[in-house]
Nucleic acid binder design. Structure first.
Lengths: 258, 258
DNA sequence: GTCTATACAACGATAGAC
DNA sequence: GTCTATCGTTGTATAGAC
Protein backbone atom coordinates (compact mmCIF):
# COMPACT_ATOMS: atom_id res chain seq x y z
CA UNK A 1 0.00 0.00 0.00
CA UNK A 2 1.44 3.32 -1.05
CA UNK A 3 1.79 6.13 1.47
CA UNK A 4 1.24 9.86 1.55
CA UNK A 5 1.14 11.81 -0.68
CA UNK A 6 0.14 9.06 -3.11
CA UNK A 7 -2.18 7.36 -0.69
CA UNK A 8 -3.47 8.55 2.65
CA UNK A 9 -3.93 6.07 5.44
CA UNK A 10 -6.51 6.28 8.17
CA UNK A 11 -3.67 6.35 10.71
CA UNK A 12 -2.08 9.41 9.10
CA UNK A 13 -5.41 11.18 9.38
CA UNK A 14 -6.05 10.15 12.97
CA UNK A 15 -2.68 11.54 14.02
CA UNK A 16 -3.49 14.93 12.55
CA UNK A 17 -7.00 15.34 13.92
CA UNK A 18 -8.37 14.44 17.32
CA UNK A 19 -11.98 13.57 16.71
CA UNK A 20 -12.49 11.09 19.51
CA UNK A 21 -9.99 11.61 22.37
CA UNK A 22 -10.43 13.35 25.70
CA UNK A 23 -9.75 16.78 24.27
CA UNK A 24 -12.60 16.27 21.80
CA UNK A 25 -14.99 15.54 24.64
CA UNK A 26 -13.72 18.52 26.59
CA UNK A 27 -14.66 20.56 23.54
CA UNK A 28 -18.12 19.06 23.64
CA UNK A 29 -18.37 19.93 27.32
CA UNK A 30 -17.24 23.52 26.79
CA UNK A 31 -19.46 23.93 23.76
CA UNK A 32 -22.62 23.76 25.82
CA UNK A 33 -21.71 23.89 29.48
CA UNK A 34 -24.07 26.84 29.82
CA UNK A 35 -26.95 24.45 29.24
CA UNK A 36 -25.78 22.04 31.92
CA UNK A 37 -25.97 22.25 35.69
CA UNK A 38 -22.89 20.10 36.13
CA UNK A 39 -19.76 22.14 36.64
CA UNK A 40 -17.11 19.49 37.14
CA UNK A 41 -15.71 18.55 33.71
CA UNK A 42 -14.51 15.15 34.85
CA UNK A 43 -17.95 14.13 36.03
CA UNK A 44 -19.67 15.77 33.08
CA UNK A 45 -17.59 14.18 30.34
CA UNK A 46 -18.21 10.66 31.62
CA UNK A 47 -21.97 11.11 31.54
CA UNK A 48 -21.98 13.14 28.35
CA UNK A 49 -20.30 10.23 26.60
CA UNK A 50 -22.95 7.89 27.97
CA UNK A 51 -25.79 10.19 26.93
CA UNK A 52 -24.51 10.88 23.44
CA UNK A 53 -23.67 7.31 22.60
CA UNK A 54 -27.00 6.08 23.95
CA UNK A 55 -28.76 8.74 21.89
CA UNK A 56 -26.98 7.54 18.77
CA UNK A 57 -27.81 3.95 19.53
CA UNK A 58 -31.49 4.64 20.03
CA UNK A 59 -32.09 7.48 17.57
CA UNK A 60 -30.09 5.90 14.78
CA UNK A 61 -32.16 2.75 14.96
CA UNK A 62 -35.68 3.98 15.75
CA UNK A 63 -35.41 7.73 15.09
CA UNK A 64 -34.89 10.61 17.48
CA UNK A 65 -38.57 11.54 17.78
CA UNK A 66 -39.49 7.92 18.41
CA UNK A 67 -36.88 7.69 21.17
CA UNK A 68 -38.33 8.78 24.50
CA UNK A 69 -36.31 10.23 27.36
CA UNK A 70 -37.41 7.20 29.34
CA UNK A 71 -35.67 5.05 26.73
CA UNK A 72 -32.61 7.23 27.09
CA UNK A 73 -32.76 7.03 30.87
CA UNK A 74 -32.89 3.25 30.72
CA UNK A 75 -30.05 2.99 28.21
CA UNK A 76 -27.71 5.38 30.06
CA UNK A 77 -28.73 4.16 33.52
CA UNK A 78 -29.20 7.79 34.49
CA UNK A 79 -32.54 8.78 36.02
CA UNK A 80 -34.94 11.10 34.21
CA UNK A 81 -34.17 13.88 36.66
CA UNK A 82 -30.47 13.21 36.28
CA UNK A 83 -30.62 13.58 32.52
CA UNK A 84 -31.94 17.10 32.86
CA UNK A 85 -28.77 18.12 34.65
CA UNK A 86 -26.96 17.48 31.34
CA UNK A 87 -29.44 18.60 28.72
CA UNK A 88 -31.69 21.62 28.59
CA UNK A 89 -34.44 19.71 26.83
CA UNK A 90 -34.85 16.87 24.40
CA UNK A 91 -34.72 19.19 21.41
CA UNK A 92 -31.65 20.81 22.89
CA UNK A 93 -29.85 17.51 22.85
CA UNK A 94 -30.34 17.18 19.11
CA UNK A 95 -29.28 20.78 18.54
CA UNK A 96 -26.11 20.31 20.53
CA UNK A 97 -25.19 17.22 18.54
CA UNK A 98 -25.63 19.06 15.28
CA UNK A 99 -23.67 22.05 16.56
CA UNK A 100 -20.72 20.01 17.76
CA UNK A 101 -20.48 18.06 14.52
CA UNK A 102 -20.76 21.14 12.36
CA UNK A 103 -18.04 22.97 14.30
CA UNK A 104 -15.78 19.94 14.11
CA UNK A 105 -16.22 19.42 10.38
CA UNK A 106 -15.75 23.10 9.81
CA UNK A 107 -12.33 22.94 11.42
CA UNK A 108 -11.28 19.91 9.41
CA UNK A 109 -12.46 21.46 6.16
CA UNK A 110 -10.79 24.76 6.94
CA UNK A 111 -7.44 23.15 7.65
CA UNK A 112 -7.62 21.11 4.44
CA UNK A 113 -8.04 24.34 2.49
CA UNK A 114 -4.76 25.67 3.70
CA UNK A 115 -2.61 22.74 2.69
CA UNK A 116 -0.25 23.85 -0.02
CA UNK A 117 -0.53 20.92 -2.38
CA UNK A 118 -0.84 20.29 -6.08
CA UNK A 119 -4.48 20.12 -7.23
CA UNK A 120 -4.52 16.34 -7.48
CA UNK A 121 -3.07 15.89 -4.04
CA UNK A 122 -5.27 18.51 -2.46
CA UNK A 123 -8.29 16.84 -4.01
CA UNK A 124 -7.11 13.55 -2.60
CA UNK A 125 -6.67 15.11 0.82
CA UNK A 126 -10.21 16.49 0.70
CA UNK A 127 -11.81 13.22 -0.32
CA UNK A 128 -9.84 11.00 2.02
CA UNK A 129 -10.13 13.50 4.84
CA UNK A 130 -13.88 13.69 4.56
CA UNK A 131 -14.27 9.92 4.46
CA UNK A 132 -11.97 9.36 7.42
CA UNK A 133 -13.71 12.03 9.49
CA UNK A 134 -16.99 10.36 8.55
CA UNK A 135 -15.68 6.97 9.60
CA UNK A 136 -14.68 8.25 13.04
CA UNK A 137 -17.83 10.28 13.60
CA UNK A 138 -20.20 8.00 11.70
CA UNK A 139 -23.06 8.06 14.24
CA UNK A 140 -22.85 11.84 14.42
CA UNK A 141 -23.03 12.22 10.66
CA UNK A 142 -25.89 9.77 10.33
CA UNK A 143 -27.82 11.37 13.16
CA UNK A 144 -27.46 14.87 11.71
CA UNK A 145 -28.41 13.74 8.23
CA UNK A 146 -31.54 11.96 9.37
CA UNK A 147 -32.70 14.39 12.04
CA UNK A 148 -31.80 17.69 10.40
CA UNK A 149 -35.35 18.51 9.40
CA UNK A 150 -36.46 18.29 13.04
CA UNK A 151 -34.00 21.03 14.03
CA UNK A 152 -34.59 24.81 14.06
CA UNK A 153 -34.63 26.41 10.64
CA UNK A 154 -31.49 28.34 11.42
CA UNK A 155 -29.54 25.16 12.03
CA UNK A 156 -30.89 23.60 8.86
CA UNK A 157 -29.56 26.53 6.92
CA UNK A 158 -26.18 26.39 8.60
CA UNK A 159 -25.90 22.71 7.75
CA UNK A 160 -26.72 23.33 4.09
CA UNK A 161 -24.25 26.16 4.13
CA UNK A 162 -21.52 23.89 5.42
CA UNK A 163 -22.24 21.37 2.69
CA UNK A 164 -21.99 24.06 0.04
CA UNK A 165 -18.75 25.30 1.57
CA UNK A 166 -17.33 21.81 1.36
CA UNK A 167 -18.31 21.63 -2.27
CA UNK A 168 -16.78 25.04 -2.88
CA UNK A 169 -13.48 23.59 -1.67
CA UNK A 170 -13.77 20.91 -4.32
CA UNK A 171 -14.75 23.43 -6.97
CA UNK A 172 -11.75 25.61 -6.14
CA UNK A 173 -9.33 22.73 -6.50
CA UNK A 174 -10.94 21.62 -9.74
CA UNK A 175 -10.71 25.08 -11.22
CA UNK A 176 -7.09 25.35 -10.21
CA UNK A 177 -6.44 22.05 -11.98
CA UNK A 178 -8.26 23.27 -15.06
CA UNK A 179 -6.07 26.37 -15.18
CA UNK A 180 -2.95 24.22 -15.05
CA UNK A 181 -4.32 21.90 -17.76
CA UNK A 182 -4.44 18.84 -15.57
CA UNK A 183 -8.23 18.69 -15.36
CA UNK A 184 -11.07 19.18 -17.79
CA UNK A 185 -14.62 19.61 -16.56
CA UNK A 186 -17.64 21.49 -17.89
CA UNK A 187 -19.42 21.89 -14.56
CA UNK A 188 -17.22 21.71 -11.47
CA UNK A 189 -20.22 22.64 -9.39
CA UNK A 190 -22.26 19.62 -10.42
CA UNK A 191 -19.26 17.35 -10.25
CA UNK A 192 -18.73 18.44 -6.65
CA UNK A 193 -22.39 17.71 -5.90
CA UNK A 194 -22.13 14.25 -7.44
CA UNK A 195 -19.02 13.52 -5.41
CA UNK A 196 -20.69 14.67 -2.20
CA UNK A 197 -23.48 12.20 -2.88
CA UNK A 198 -20.96 9.39 -3.01
CA UNK A 199 -19.11 10.55 0.09
CA UNK A 200 -22.27 10.73 2.21
CA UNK A 201 -23.15 7.23 1.14
CA UNK A 202 -20.40 6.00 3.43
CA UNK A 203 -22.50 6.70 6.52
CA UNK A 204 -25.93 6.35 4.88
CA UNK A 205 -25.51 2.82 3.54
CA UNK A 206 -23.25 1.09 6.01
CA UNK A 207 -25.05 -2.21 5.50
CA UNK A 208 -24.18 -2.20 1.82
CA UNK A 209 -20.46 -1.69 2.25
CA UNK A 210 -20.27 -4.14 5.09
CA UNK A 211 -21.97 -6.70 2.86
CA UNK A 212 -19.56 -5.91 0.02
CA UNK A 213 -16.55 -6.03 2.35
CA UNK A 214 -15.31 -2.58 1.37
CA UNK A 215 -13.23 -0.81 3.99
CA UNK A 216 -12.80 2.90 4.62
CA UNK A 217 -9.65 3.42 2.62
CA UNK A 218 -10.88 1.37 -0.31
CA UNK A 219 -14.02 3.44 -0.44
CA UNK A 220 -12.11 6.73 -0.31
CA UNK A 221 -9.98 5.52 -3.18
CA UNK A 222 -12.99 4.49 -5.22
CA UNK A 223 -14.59 7.90 -4.92
CA UNK A 224 -11.32 9.68 -5.56
CA UNK A 225 -10.48 7.71 -8.68
CA UNK A 226 -13.95 8.10 -10.07
CA UNK A 227 -13.49 11.82 -9.55
CA UNK A 228 -10.22 11.80 -11.47
CA UNK A 229 -11.92 10.01 -14.34
CA UNK A 230 -14.62 12.64 -14.46
CA UNK A 231 -11.90 15.29 -14.48
CA UNK A 232 -10.12 13.65 -17.42
CA UNK A 233 -7.03 13.89 -15.30
CA UNK A 234 -3.70 13.90 -17.10
CA UNK A 235 -0.57 14.25 -14.96
CA UNK A 236 1.84 16.97 -16.03
CA UNK A 237 4.93 15.83 -17.89
CA UNK A 238 8.24 15.50 -16.06
CA UNK A 239 6.83 14.54 -12.68
CA UNK A 240 6.34 11.30 -10.87
CA UNK A 241 2.81 10.23 -11.80
CA UNK A 242 0.27 9.93 -9.02
CA UNK A 243 -1.60 6.73 -8.52
CA UNK A 244 -4.75 6.65 -10.55
CA UNK A 245 -3.28 9.07 -13.02
CA UNK A 246 -3.57 6.65 -15.91
CA UNK A 247 -6.98 5.37 -16.74
CA UNK A 248 -5.93 1.77 -17.13
CA UNK A 249 -3.74 1.92 -14.07
CA UNK A 250 -6.77 3.09 -12.13
CA UNK A 251 -8.73 0.12 -13.35
CA UNK A 252 -6.04 -2.34 -12.42
CA UNK A 253 -5.45 -0.94 -8.95
CA UNK A 254 -9.03 -0.91 -8.03
CA UNK A 255 -9.90 -4.55 -7.57
CA UNK A 256 -12.00 -5.76 -4.69
CA UNK A 257 -12.40 -9.08 -3.09
CA UNK A 258 -15.56 -10.21 -4.77
CA UNK B 1 -32.50 18.09 -27.85
CA UNK B 2 -31.92 14.60 -29.19
CA UNK B 3 -34.62 11.97 -28.89
CA UNK B 4 -34.80 8.29 -28.03
CA UNK B 5 -32.72 6.19 -28.21
CA UNK B 6 -30.00 8.79 -27.88
CA UNK B 7 -31.82 10.81 -25.30
CA UNK B 8 -34.92 9.96 -23.29
CA UNK B 9 -37.41 12.68 -22.51
CA UNK B 10 -39.58 12.87 -19.45
CA UNK B 11 -42.63 12.81 -21.73
CA UNK B 12 -41.58 9.54 -23.34
CA UNK B 13 -41.31 8.02 -19.88
CA UNK B 14 -44.62 9.40 -18.65
CA UNK B 15 -46.41 7.88 -21.63
CA UNK B 16 -45.05 4.44 -20.84
CA UNK B 17 -45.74 4.37 -17.12
CA UNK B 18 -48.73 5.65 -15.20
CA UNK B 19 -47.36 6.70 -11.85
CA UNK B 20 -49.81 9.44 -11.02
CA UNK B 21 -53.13 9.00 -12.88
CA UNK B 22 -56.43 7.58 -11.66
CA UNK B 23 -55.39 4.00 -12.31
CA UNK B 24 -52.39 4.50 -10.04
CA UNK B 25 -54.65 5.64 -7.21
CA UNK B 26 -57.01 2.75 -7.83
CA UNK B 27 -53.98 0.53 -7.32
CA UNK B 28 -53.29 2.29 -4.05
CA UNK B 29 -56.90 1.75 -3.02
CA UNK B 30 -56.86 -1.93 -3.89
CA UNK B 31 -53.49 -2.43 -2.25
CA UNK B 32 -54.86 -1.86 1.20
CA UNK B 33 -58.64 -1.76 1.04
CA UNK B 34 -58.71 -4.48 3.68
CA UNK B 35 -57.40 -1.93 6.15
CA UNK B 36 -60.10 0.62 5.30
CA UNK B 37 -63.75 0.74 6.24
CA UNK B 38 -64.66 2.68 3.11
CA UNK B 39 -65.91 0.46 0.33
CA UNK B 40 -66.73 2.95 -2.40
CA UNK B 41 -63.58 3.45 -4.50
CA UNK B 42 -64.69 6.85 -5.77
CA UNK B 43 -65.11 8.22 -2.28
CA UNK B 44 -62.02 6.47 -1.01
CA UNK B 45 -59.62 7.66 -3.70
CA UNK B 46 -60.51 11.31 -3.16
CA UNK B 47 -59.72 11.14 0.53
CA UNK B 48 -56.74 8.84 0.11
CA UNK B 49 -55.15 11.46 -2.11
CA UNK B 50 -55.79 14.10 0.55
CA UNK B 51 -54.38 11.92 3.32
CA UNK B 52 -51.27 10.84 1.44
CA UNK B 53 -50.35 14.27 0.18
CA UNK B 54 -50.93 15.85 3.58
CA UNK B 55 -48.76 13.15 5.13
CA UNK B 56 -45.98 13.93 2.69
CA UNK B 57 -46.30 17.63 3.32
CA UNK B 58 -46.11 17.25 7.08
CA UNK B 59 -43.80 14.26 7.45
CA UNK B 60 -41.34 15.45 4.82
CA UNK B 61 -40.88 18.75 6.62
CA UNK B 62 -41.04 17.85 10.32
CA UNK B 63 -40.71 14.06 10.24
CA UNK B 64 -43.35 11.34 10.43
CA UNK B 65 -42.96 10.70 14.15
CA UNK B 66 -43.17 14.42 14.87
CA UNK B 67 -46.37 14.68 12.83
CA UNK B 68 -49.41 14.03 14.98
CA UNK B 69 -52.70 12.70 13.71
CA UNK B 70 -54.20 15.96 14.91
CA UNK B 71 -51.84 17.72 12.49
CA UNK B 72 -52.96 15.35 9.77
CA UNK B 73 -56.62 15.89 10.61
CA UNK B 74 -56.18 19.66 10.38
CA UNK B 75 -54.28 19.49 7.10
CA UNK B 76 -56.70 17.11 5.38
CA UNK B 77 -59.80 18.71 6.91
CA UNK B 78 -60.93 15.23 7.87
CA UNK B 79 -61.84 14.62 11.51
CA UNK B 80 -59.78 12.31 13.71
CA UNK B 81 -62.53 9.73 13.67
CA UNK B 82 -62.83 10.09 9.92
CA UNK B 83 -59.13 9.40 9.38
CA UNK B 84 -59.46 6.03 11.06
CA UNK B 85 -61.91 4.95 8.40
CA UNK B 86 -58.99 5.13 5.95
CA UNK B 87 -56.02 3.98 7.96
CA UNK B 88 -55.63 1.14 10.41
CA UNK B 89 -53.23 3.09 12.60
CA UNK B 90 -50.56 5.73 12.26
CA UNK B 91 -47.83 3.16 11.77
CA UNK B 92 -50.02 1.43 9.22
CA UNK B 93 -50.10 4.58 7.15
CA UNK B 94 -46.31 4.62 6.87
CA UNK B 95 -46.23 0.92 6.05
CA UNK B 96 -48.77 1.33 3.28
CA UNK B 97 -46.80 4.17 1.73
CA UNK B 98 -43.64 2.09 1.69
CA UNK B 99 -45.50 -0.90 0.28
CA UNK B 100 -47.11 1.02 -2.55
CA UNK B 101 -43.85 2.66 -3.58
CA UNK B 102 -41.91 -0.59 -3.46
CA UNK B 103 -44.45 -2.42 -5.58
CA UNK B 104 -44.50 0.42 -8.09
CA UNK B 105 -40.73 0.66 -8.43
CA UNK B 106 -40.51 -3.09 -8.67
CA UNK B 107 -42.76 -3.03 -11.73
CA UNK B 108 -40.79 -0.25 -13.41
CA UNK B 109 -37.49 -1.98 -12.74
CA UNK B 110 -38.82 -5.31 -13.94
CA UNK B 111 -40.05 -3.89 -17.22
CA UNK B 112 -36.74 -2.11 -17.83
CA UNK B 113 -34.96 -5.45 -17.51
CA UNK B 114 -36.87 -6.91 -20.39
CA UNK B 115 -36.11 -4.21 -22.93
CA UNK B 116 -33.99 -5.69 -25.66
CA UNK B 117 -31.42 -2.97 -26.10
CA UNK B 118 -27.72 -2.60 -26.56
CA UNK B 119 -25.85 -2.30 -23.24
CA UNK B 120 -25.35 1.45 -23.56
CA UNK B 121 -28.98 2.09 -24.35
CA UNK B 122 -30.26 -0.24 -21.66
CA UNK B 123 -28.04 1.50 -19.16
CA UNK B 124 -29.42 4.80 -20.33
CA UNK B 125 -32.98 3.52 -19.96
CA UNK B 126 -32.25 2.35 -16.41
CA UNK B 127 -30.70 5.64 -15.31
CA UNK B 128 -33.23 7.92 -16.98
CA UNK B 129 -36.12 5.67 -15.96
CA UNK B 130 -35.10 5.72 -12.32
CA UNK B 131 -34.67 9.49 -12.27
CA UNK B 132 -37.99 10.12 -14.00
CA UNK B 133 -39.85 7.77 -11.68
CA UNK B 134 -38.17 9.57 -8.80
CA UNK B 135 -39.22 12.93 -10.15
CA UNK B 136 -42.87 11.88 -10.36
CA UNK B 137 -42.93 10.13 -7.00
CA UNK B 138 -40.44 12.39 -5.25
CA UNK B 139 -42.37 12.76 -1.97
CA UNK B 140 -42.85 9.01 -1.82
CA UNK B 141 -39.15 8.31 -2.33
CA UNK B 142 -38.10 10.91 0.19
CA UNK B 143 -40.60 9.71 2.77
CA UNK B 144 -39.50 6.09 2.42
CA UNK B 145 -35.82 6.97 2.60
CA UNK B 146 -36.18 9.06 5.73
CA UNK B 147 -38.74 6.95 7.58
CA UNK B 148 -37.54 3.47 6.69
CA UNK B 149 -35.91 2.84 10.05
CA UNK B 150 -39.26 3.41 11.78
CA UNK B 151 -40.90 0.61 9.80
CA UNK B 152 -41.07 -3.09 10.72
CA UNK B 153 -37.83 -4.97 10.23
CA UNK B 154 -39.36 -7.05 7.47
CA UNK B 155 -40.11 -3.97 5.41
CA UNK B 156 -36.64 -2.58 5.98
CA UNK B 157 -35.21 -5.77 4.56
CA UNK B 158 -37.50 -5.73 1.56
CA UNK B 159 -36.47 -2.15 0.82
CA UNK B 160 -32.77 -3.02 0.97
CA UNK B 161 -33.50 -6.01 -1.20
CA UNK B 162 -35.15 -3.84 -3.83
CA UNK B 163 -32.17 -1.50 -3.85
CA UNK B 164 -29.80 -4.40 -4.37
CA UNK B 165 -32.01 -5.74 -7.15
CA UNK B 166 -31.87 -2.39 -8.88
CA UNK B 167 -28.10 -2.44 -8.63
CA UNK B 168 -28.03 -5.97 -9.95
CA UNK B 169 -29.76 -4.67 -13.08
CA UNK B 170 -26.94 -2.20 -13.53
CA UNK B 171 -24.34 -4.86 -12.86
CA UNK B 172 -25.87 -7.17 -15.46
CA UNK B 173 -25.80 -4.49 -18.14
CA UNK B 174 -22.25 -3.54 -17.27
CA UNK B 175 -21.08 -7.12 -17.49
CA UNK B 176 -22.78 -7.56 -20.82
CA UNK B 177 -20.97 -4.47 -22.06
CA UNK B 178 -17.68 -5.81 -20.77
CA UNK B 179 -18.20 -9.05 -22.68
CA UNK B 180 -18.80 -7.11 -25.89
CA UNK B 181 -15.73 -4.93 -25.25
CA UNK B 182 -17.62 -1.68 -24.97
CA UNK B 183 -17.08 -1.29 -21.23
CA UNK B 184 -14.17 -1.77 -18.86
CA UNK B 185 -14.72 -1.87 -15.14
CA UNK B 186 -12.96 -3.64 -12.29
CA UNK B 187 -15.87 -3.65 -9.88
CA UNK B 188 -19.32 -3.37 -11.46
CA UNK B 189 -20.82 -3.91 -8.04
CA UNK B 190 -19.20 -0.85 -6.50
CA UNK B 191 -19.82 1.21 -9.59
CA UNK B 192 -23.51 0.39 -9.33
CA UNK B 193 -23.48 1.43 -5.67
CA UNK B 194 -21.78 4.73 -6.49
CA UNK B 195 -24.33 5.41 -9.22
CA UNK B 196 -27.22 4.64 -6.87
CA UNK B 197 -25.85 7.23 -4.48
CA UNK B 198 -26.02 9.85 -7.20
CA UNK B 199 -29.49 8.84 -8.32
CA UNK B 200 -30.96 9.03 -4.82
CA UNK B 201 -29.50 12.49 -4.45
CA UNK B 202 -32.20 13.71 -6.81
CA UNK B 203 -34.84 13.42 -4.10
CA UNK B 204 -32.55 13.86 -1.09
CA UNK B 205 -31.07 17.22 -2.03
CA UNK B 206 -33.83 19.01 -3.93
CA UNK B 207 -32.74 22.38 -2.54
CA UNK B 208 -29.32 22.00 -4.08
CA UNK B 209 -30.50 21.26 -7.60
CA UNK B 210 -33.15 23.92 -7.45
CA UNK B 211 -30.46 26.38 -6.42
CA UNK B 212 -28.21 25.22 -9.26
CA UNK B 213 -31.06 25.31 -11.78
CA UNK B 214 -30.60 21.72 -12.88
CA UNK B 215 -33.70 20.03 -14.26
CA UNK B 216 -34.65 16.37 -14.25
CA UNK B 217 -33.36 15.47 -17.68
CA UNK B 218 -30.11 17.35 -17.21
CA UNK B 219 -29.49 15.48 -13.99
CA UNK B 220 -30.23 12.12 -15.56
CA UNK B 221 -27.75 12.93 -18.30
CA UNK B 222 -25.10 13.99 -15.82
CA UNK B 223 -25.31 10.73 -13.92
CA UNK B 224 -25.44 8.70 -17.11
CA UNK B 225 -22.42 10.34 -18.69
CA UNK B 226 -20.41 10.07 -15.51
CA UNK B 227 -21.26 6.38 -15.56
CA UNK B 228 -20.02 6.01 -19.13
CA UNK B 229 -16.76 7.68 -18.16
CA UNK B 230 -16.31 5.25 -15.31
CA UNK B 231 -16.99 2.41 -17.74
CA UNK B 232 -14.34 3.69 -20.18
CA UNK B 233 -17.03 3.40 -22.80
CA UNK B 234 -15.92 3.05 -26.40
CA UNK B 235 -18.65 2.68 -29.03
CA UNK B 236 -18.25 -0.29 -31.34
CA UNK B 237 -16.92 0.47 -34.80
CA UNK B 238 -19.31 0.76 -37.73
CA UNK B 239 -22.27 2.13 -35.77
CA UNK B 240 -23.70 5.52 -35.21
CA UNK B 241 -22.05 6.72 -32.01
CA UNK B 242 -24.27 7.41 -29.03
CA UNK B 243 -24.17 10.73 -27.31
CA UNK B 244 -21.56 10.80 -24.62
CA UNK B 245 -19.54 8.17 -26.39
CA UNK B 246 -16.59 10.45 -26.92
CA UNK B 247 -15.05 11.91 -23.85
CA UNK B 248 -14.69 15.36 -25.26
CA UNK B 249 -18.13 15.27 -26.77
CA UNK B 250 -19.49 14.46 -23.33
CA UNK B 251 -17.73 17.46 -21.92
CA UNK B 252 -19.03 19.76 -24.58
CA UNK B 253 -22.62 18.61 -24.38
CA UNK B 254 -22.80 18.90 -20.69
CA UNK B 255 -22.89 22.61 -20.06
CA UNK B 256 -25.15 24.19 -17.52
CA UNK B 257 -26.43 27.65 -17.09
CA UNK B 258 -24.12 28.84 -14.40
C1' DG C 1 -69.49 7.66 5.66
C1' DT C 2 -68.42 11.36 8.80
C1' DC C 3 -68.66 13.66 12.94
C1' DT C 4 -68.01 14.95 18.30
C1' DA C 5 -66.69 13.50 22.59
C1' DT C 6 -63.83 11.01 25.31
C1' DA C 7 -60.68 7.27 27.17
C1' DC C 8 -56.33 6.56 28.86
C1' DA C 9 -51.45 5.66 28.07
C1' DA C 10 -47.12 7.95 27.40
C1' DC C 11 -44.67 11.97 26.97
C1' DG C 12 -41.44 15.93 28.43
C1' DA C 13 -40.39 18.40 32.22
C1' DT C 14 -39.90 19.90 37.23
C1' DA C 15 -39.89 20.06 42.43
C1' DG C 16 -37.83 18.79 46.30
C1' DA C 17 -35.57 15.09 49.21
C1' DC C 18 -31.12 13.27 49.92
C1' DG D 1 -24.85 15.73 41.74
C1' DT D 2 -28.47 12.30 41.61
C1' DC D 3 -32.66 10.44 42.84
C1' DT D 4 -38.07 9.59 43.30
C1' DA D 5 -42.46 11.29 42.74
C1' DT D 6 -45.53 13.80 40.24
C1' DC D 7 -47.44 17.57 37.28
C1' DG D 8 -49.78 18.99 33.07
C1' DT D 9 -49.96 18.08 28.20
C1' DT D 10 -50.38 15.69 24.19
C1' DG D 11 -50.53 11.55 21.81
C1' DT D 12 -53.20 7.52 19.53
C1' DA D 13 -57.27 5.35 19.30
C1' DT D 14 -62.33 4.32 19.93
C1' DA D 15 -67.49 4.69 20.98
C1' DG D 16 -71.57 6.19 19.59
C1' DA D 17 -74.58 9.97 17.54
C1' DC D 18 -76.05 11.47 13.09
Amino acid sequence: MAVWPYEISMEAFTESYDLQGESFWLNVFNAHKDKMQIKNPNVAVVNLKKIFSATFKLANTKGFQAMSLRDLSRETEISMGGLYAYIGSKNDLASVIEGVLRTTIDEVIGSLRQQNLEPVERLRAIVYGEIYAMEILKPWYYFCFMELKGLPREQQEQAMDLELRFEQNVIDVVEEGIRSDQFACSSPRMLAALATAQLQQWHLKQWKFKQANVDTQQYARLVFESLLLNLHYQPLQGRAPSMGGHRLAGVEQNRFSE
